[in-house]
């Protein structure tokens, strides 16, 4: 194998703008992802303003995905989260009732704690859904699926089309109520999903991925 040493470039070259001299990458017509010189941003920084200075001349990164989920995702997730809150409230009621019975817990606590859990929980449920919706981004590119999501741990994930083995859409009862669907796609090492797209859009995305992933090859 005529594999000449082609180690990673020094950090300065990686982090500076433009096309570094070390690169053996010739100008590539079908490289539709990053055009040298075009302003692009480090993926994780994009949706998160805490990152201080980002050099706009950097072209060594994939531009962050931009497509968003259906706005009804917020409502779906709020309901989903509220179901969890109801369970917590039920647990709180059970515990406080037991304590009231056996340990003479004051009635104010017995009522107050579950109410507090309900209020705080609903607030978290709402905030989580809204923020999660604002962060979620995806993009179906010609050769890759690009995902970015996550509240506390932000994940940017790239899945080459050629590695996708099959795609499908799925609809739970709540999703059906809101006219939403989830697109799931699988590689030989695990599956990924794009949740809460409108039914028509989900079908479109599914067909798009299926068509682009068709160029199938061997493992």
């Amino acid at each position: 194998m005529s594999d000449r040493p082609h180690a990673a470039p020094p950090a300065t070259a990686r982090n500076a703008g433009g096309q570094p001299s070390w690169s053996a990458v010739p100008p590539d017509p079908d490289q539709d992802v990053v055009v040298a010189g075009e302003a692009s941003w480090p993926g994780l920084a994009a949706a998160y303003e805490v990152w201080p200075e980002v050099d706009a001349t950097q072209a060594r990164f994939i531009p962050p995905p931009e497509k968003r989920l259906d706005p009804k995702a917020k409502r779906l997730w709020i309901i989903n989260n509220l179901i969890g809150v109801v369970i917590f409230v039920a647990i709180a009621v059970a515990i406080t009732l037991l304590l009231h019975r056996w340990r003479d817990l004051a009635m104010t606590w017995t009522v107050g704690v579950p109410v507090a859990v309900a209020v705080v929980g609903s607030g978290i449920a709402w905030a989580d859904a809204v923020v999660r919706y604002r962060i979620w981004r995806y993009e179906i590119r010609a050769d890759e699926v690009d995902l970015m999501h996550g509240l506390i741990t932000r994940r940017r994930q790239l899945v080459p089309m050629a590695r996708i083995q099959h795609v499908d859409t799925r609809q739970g009862p709540l999703e059906r109520h809101y006219g939403l669907a989830t697109v799931l796609f699988y590689t030989a090492e695990g599956g990924m999903e794009i949740p809460a797209l409108s039914v028509e859009h989900a079908a479109e995305v599914r067909n798009q991925i299926a068509a682009l992933a068709k160029v199938h090859d061997d493992l």
């Binding site: 990458v25 994780l44 990152w51 950097q58 990164f61 994939i62 050769d143 890759e144 940017r156 089309m161």
Partner: peptide, 16 residues
């Protein structure tokens, strides 16, 4: 380094 990680993401694109 976050930029190194993003650089790796980009460099491992099928086209590259």
């Amino acid at each position: 380094e976050a930029r190194d990680a993003d650089w790796l993401l980009a460099e491992l694109q099928p086209a590259r």
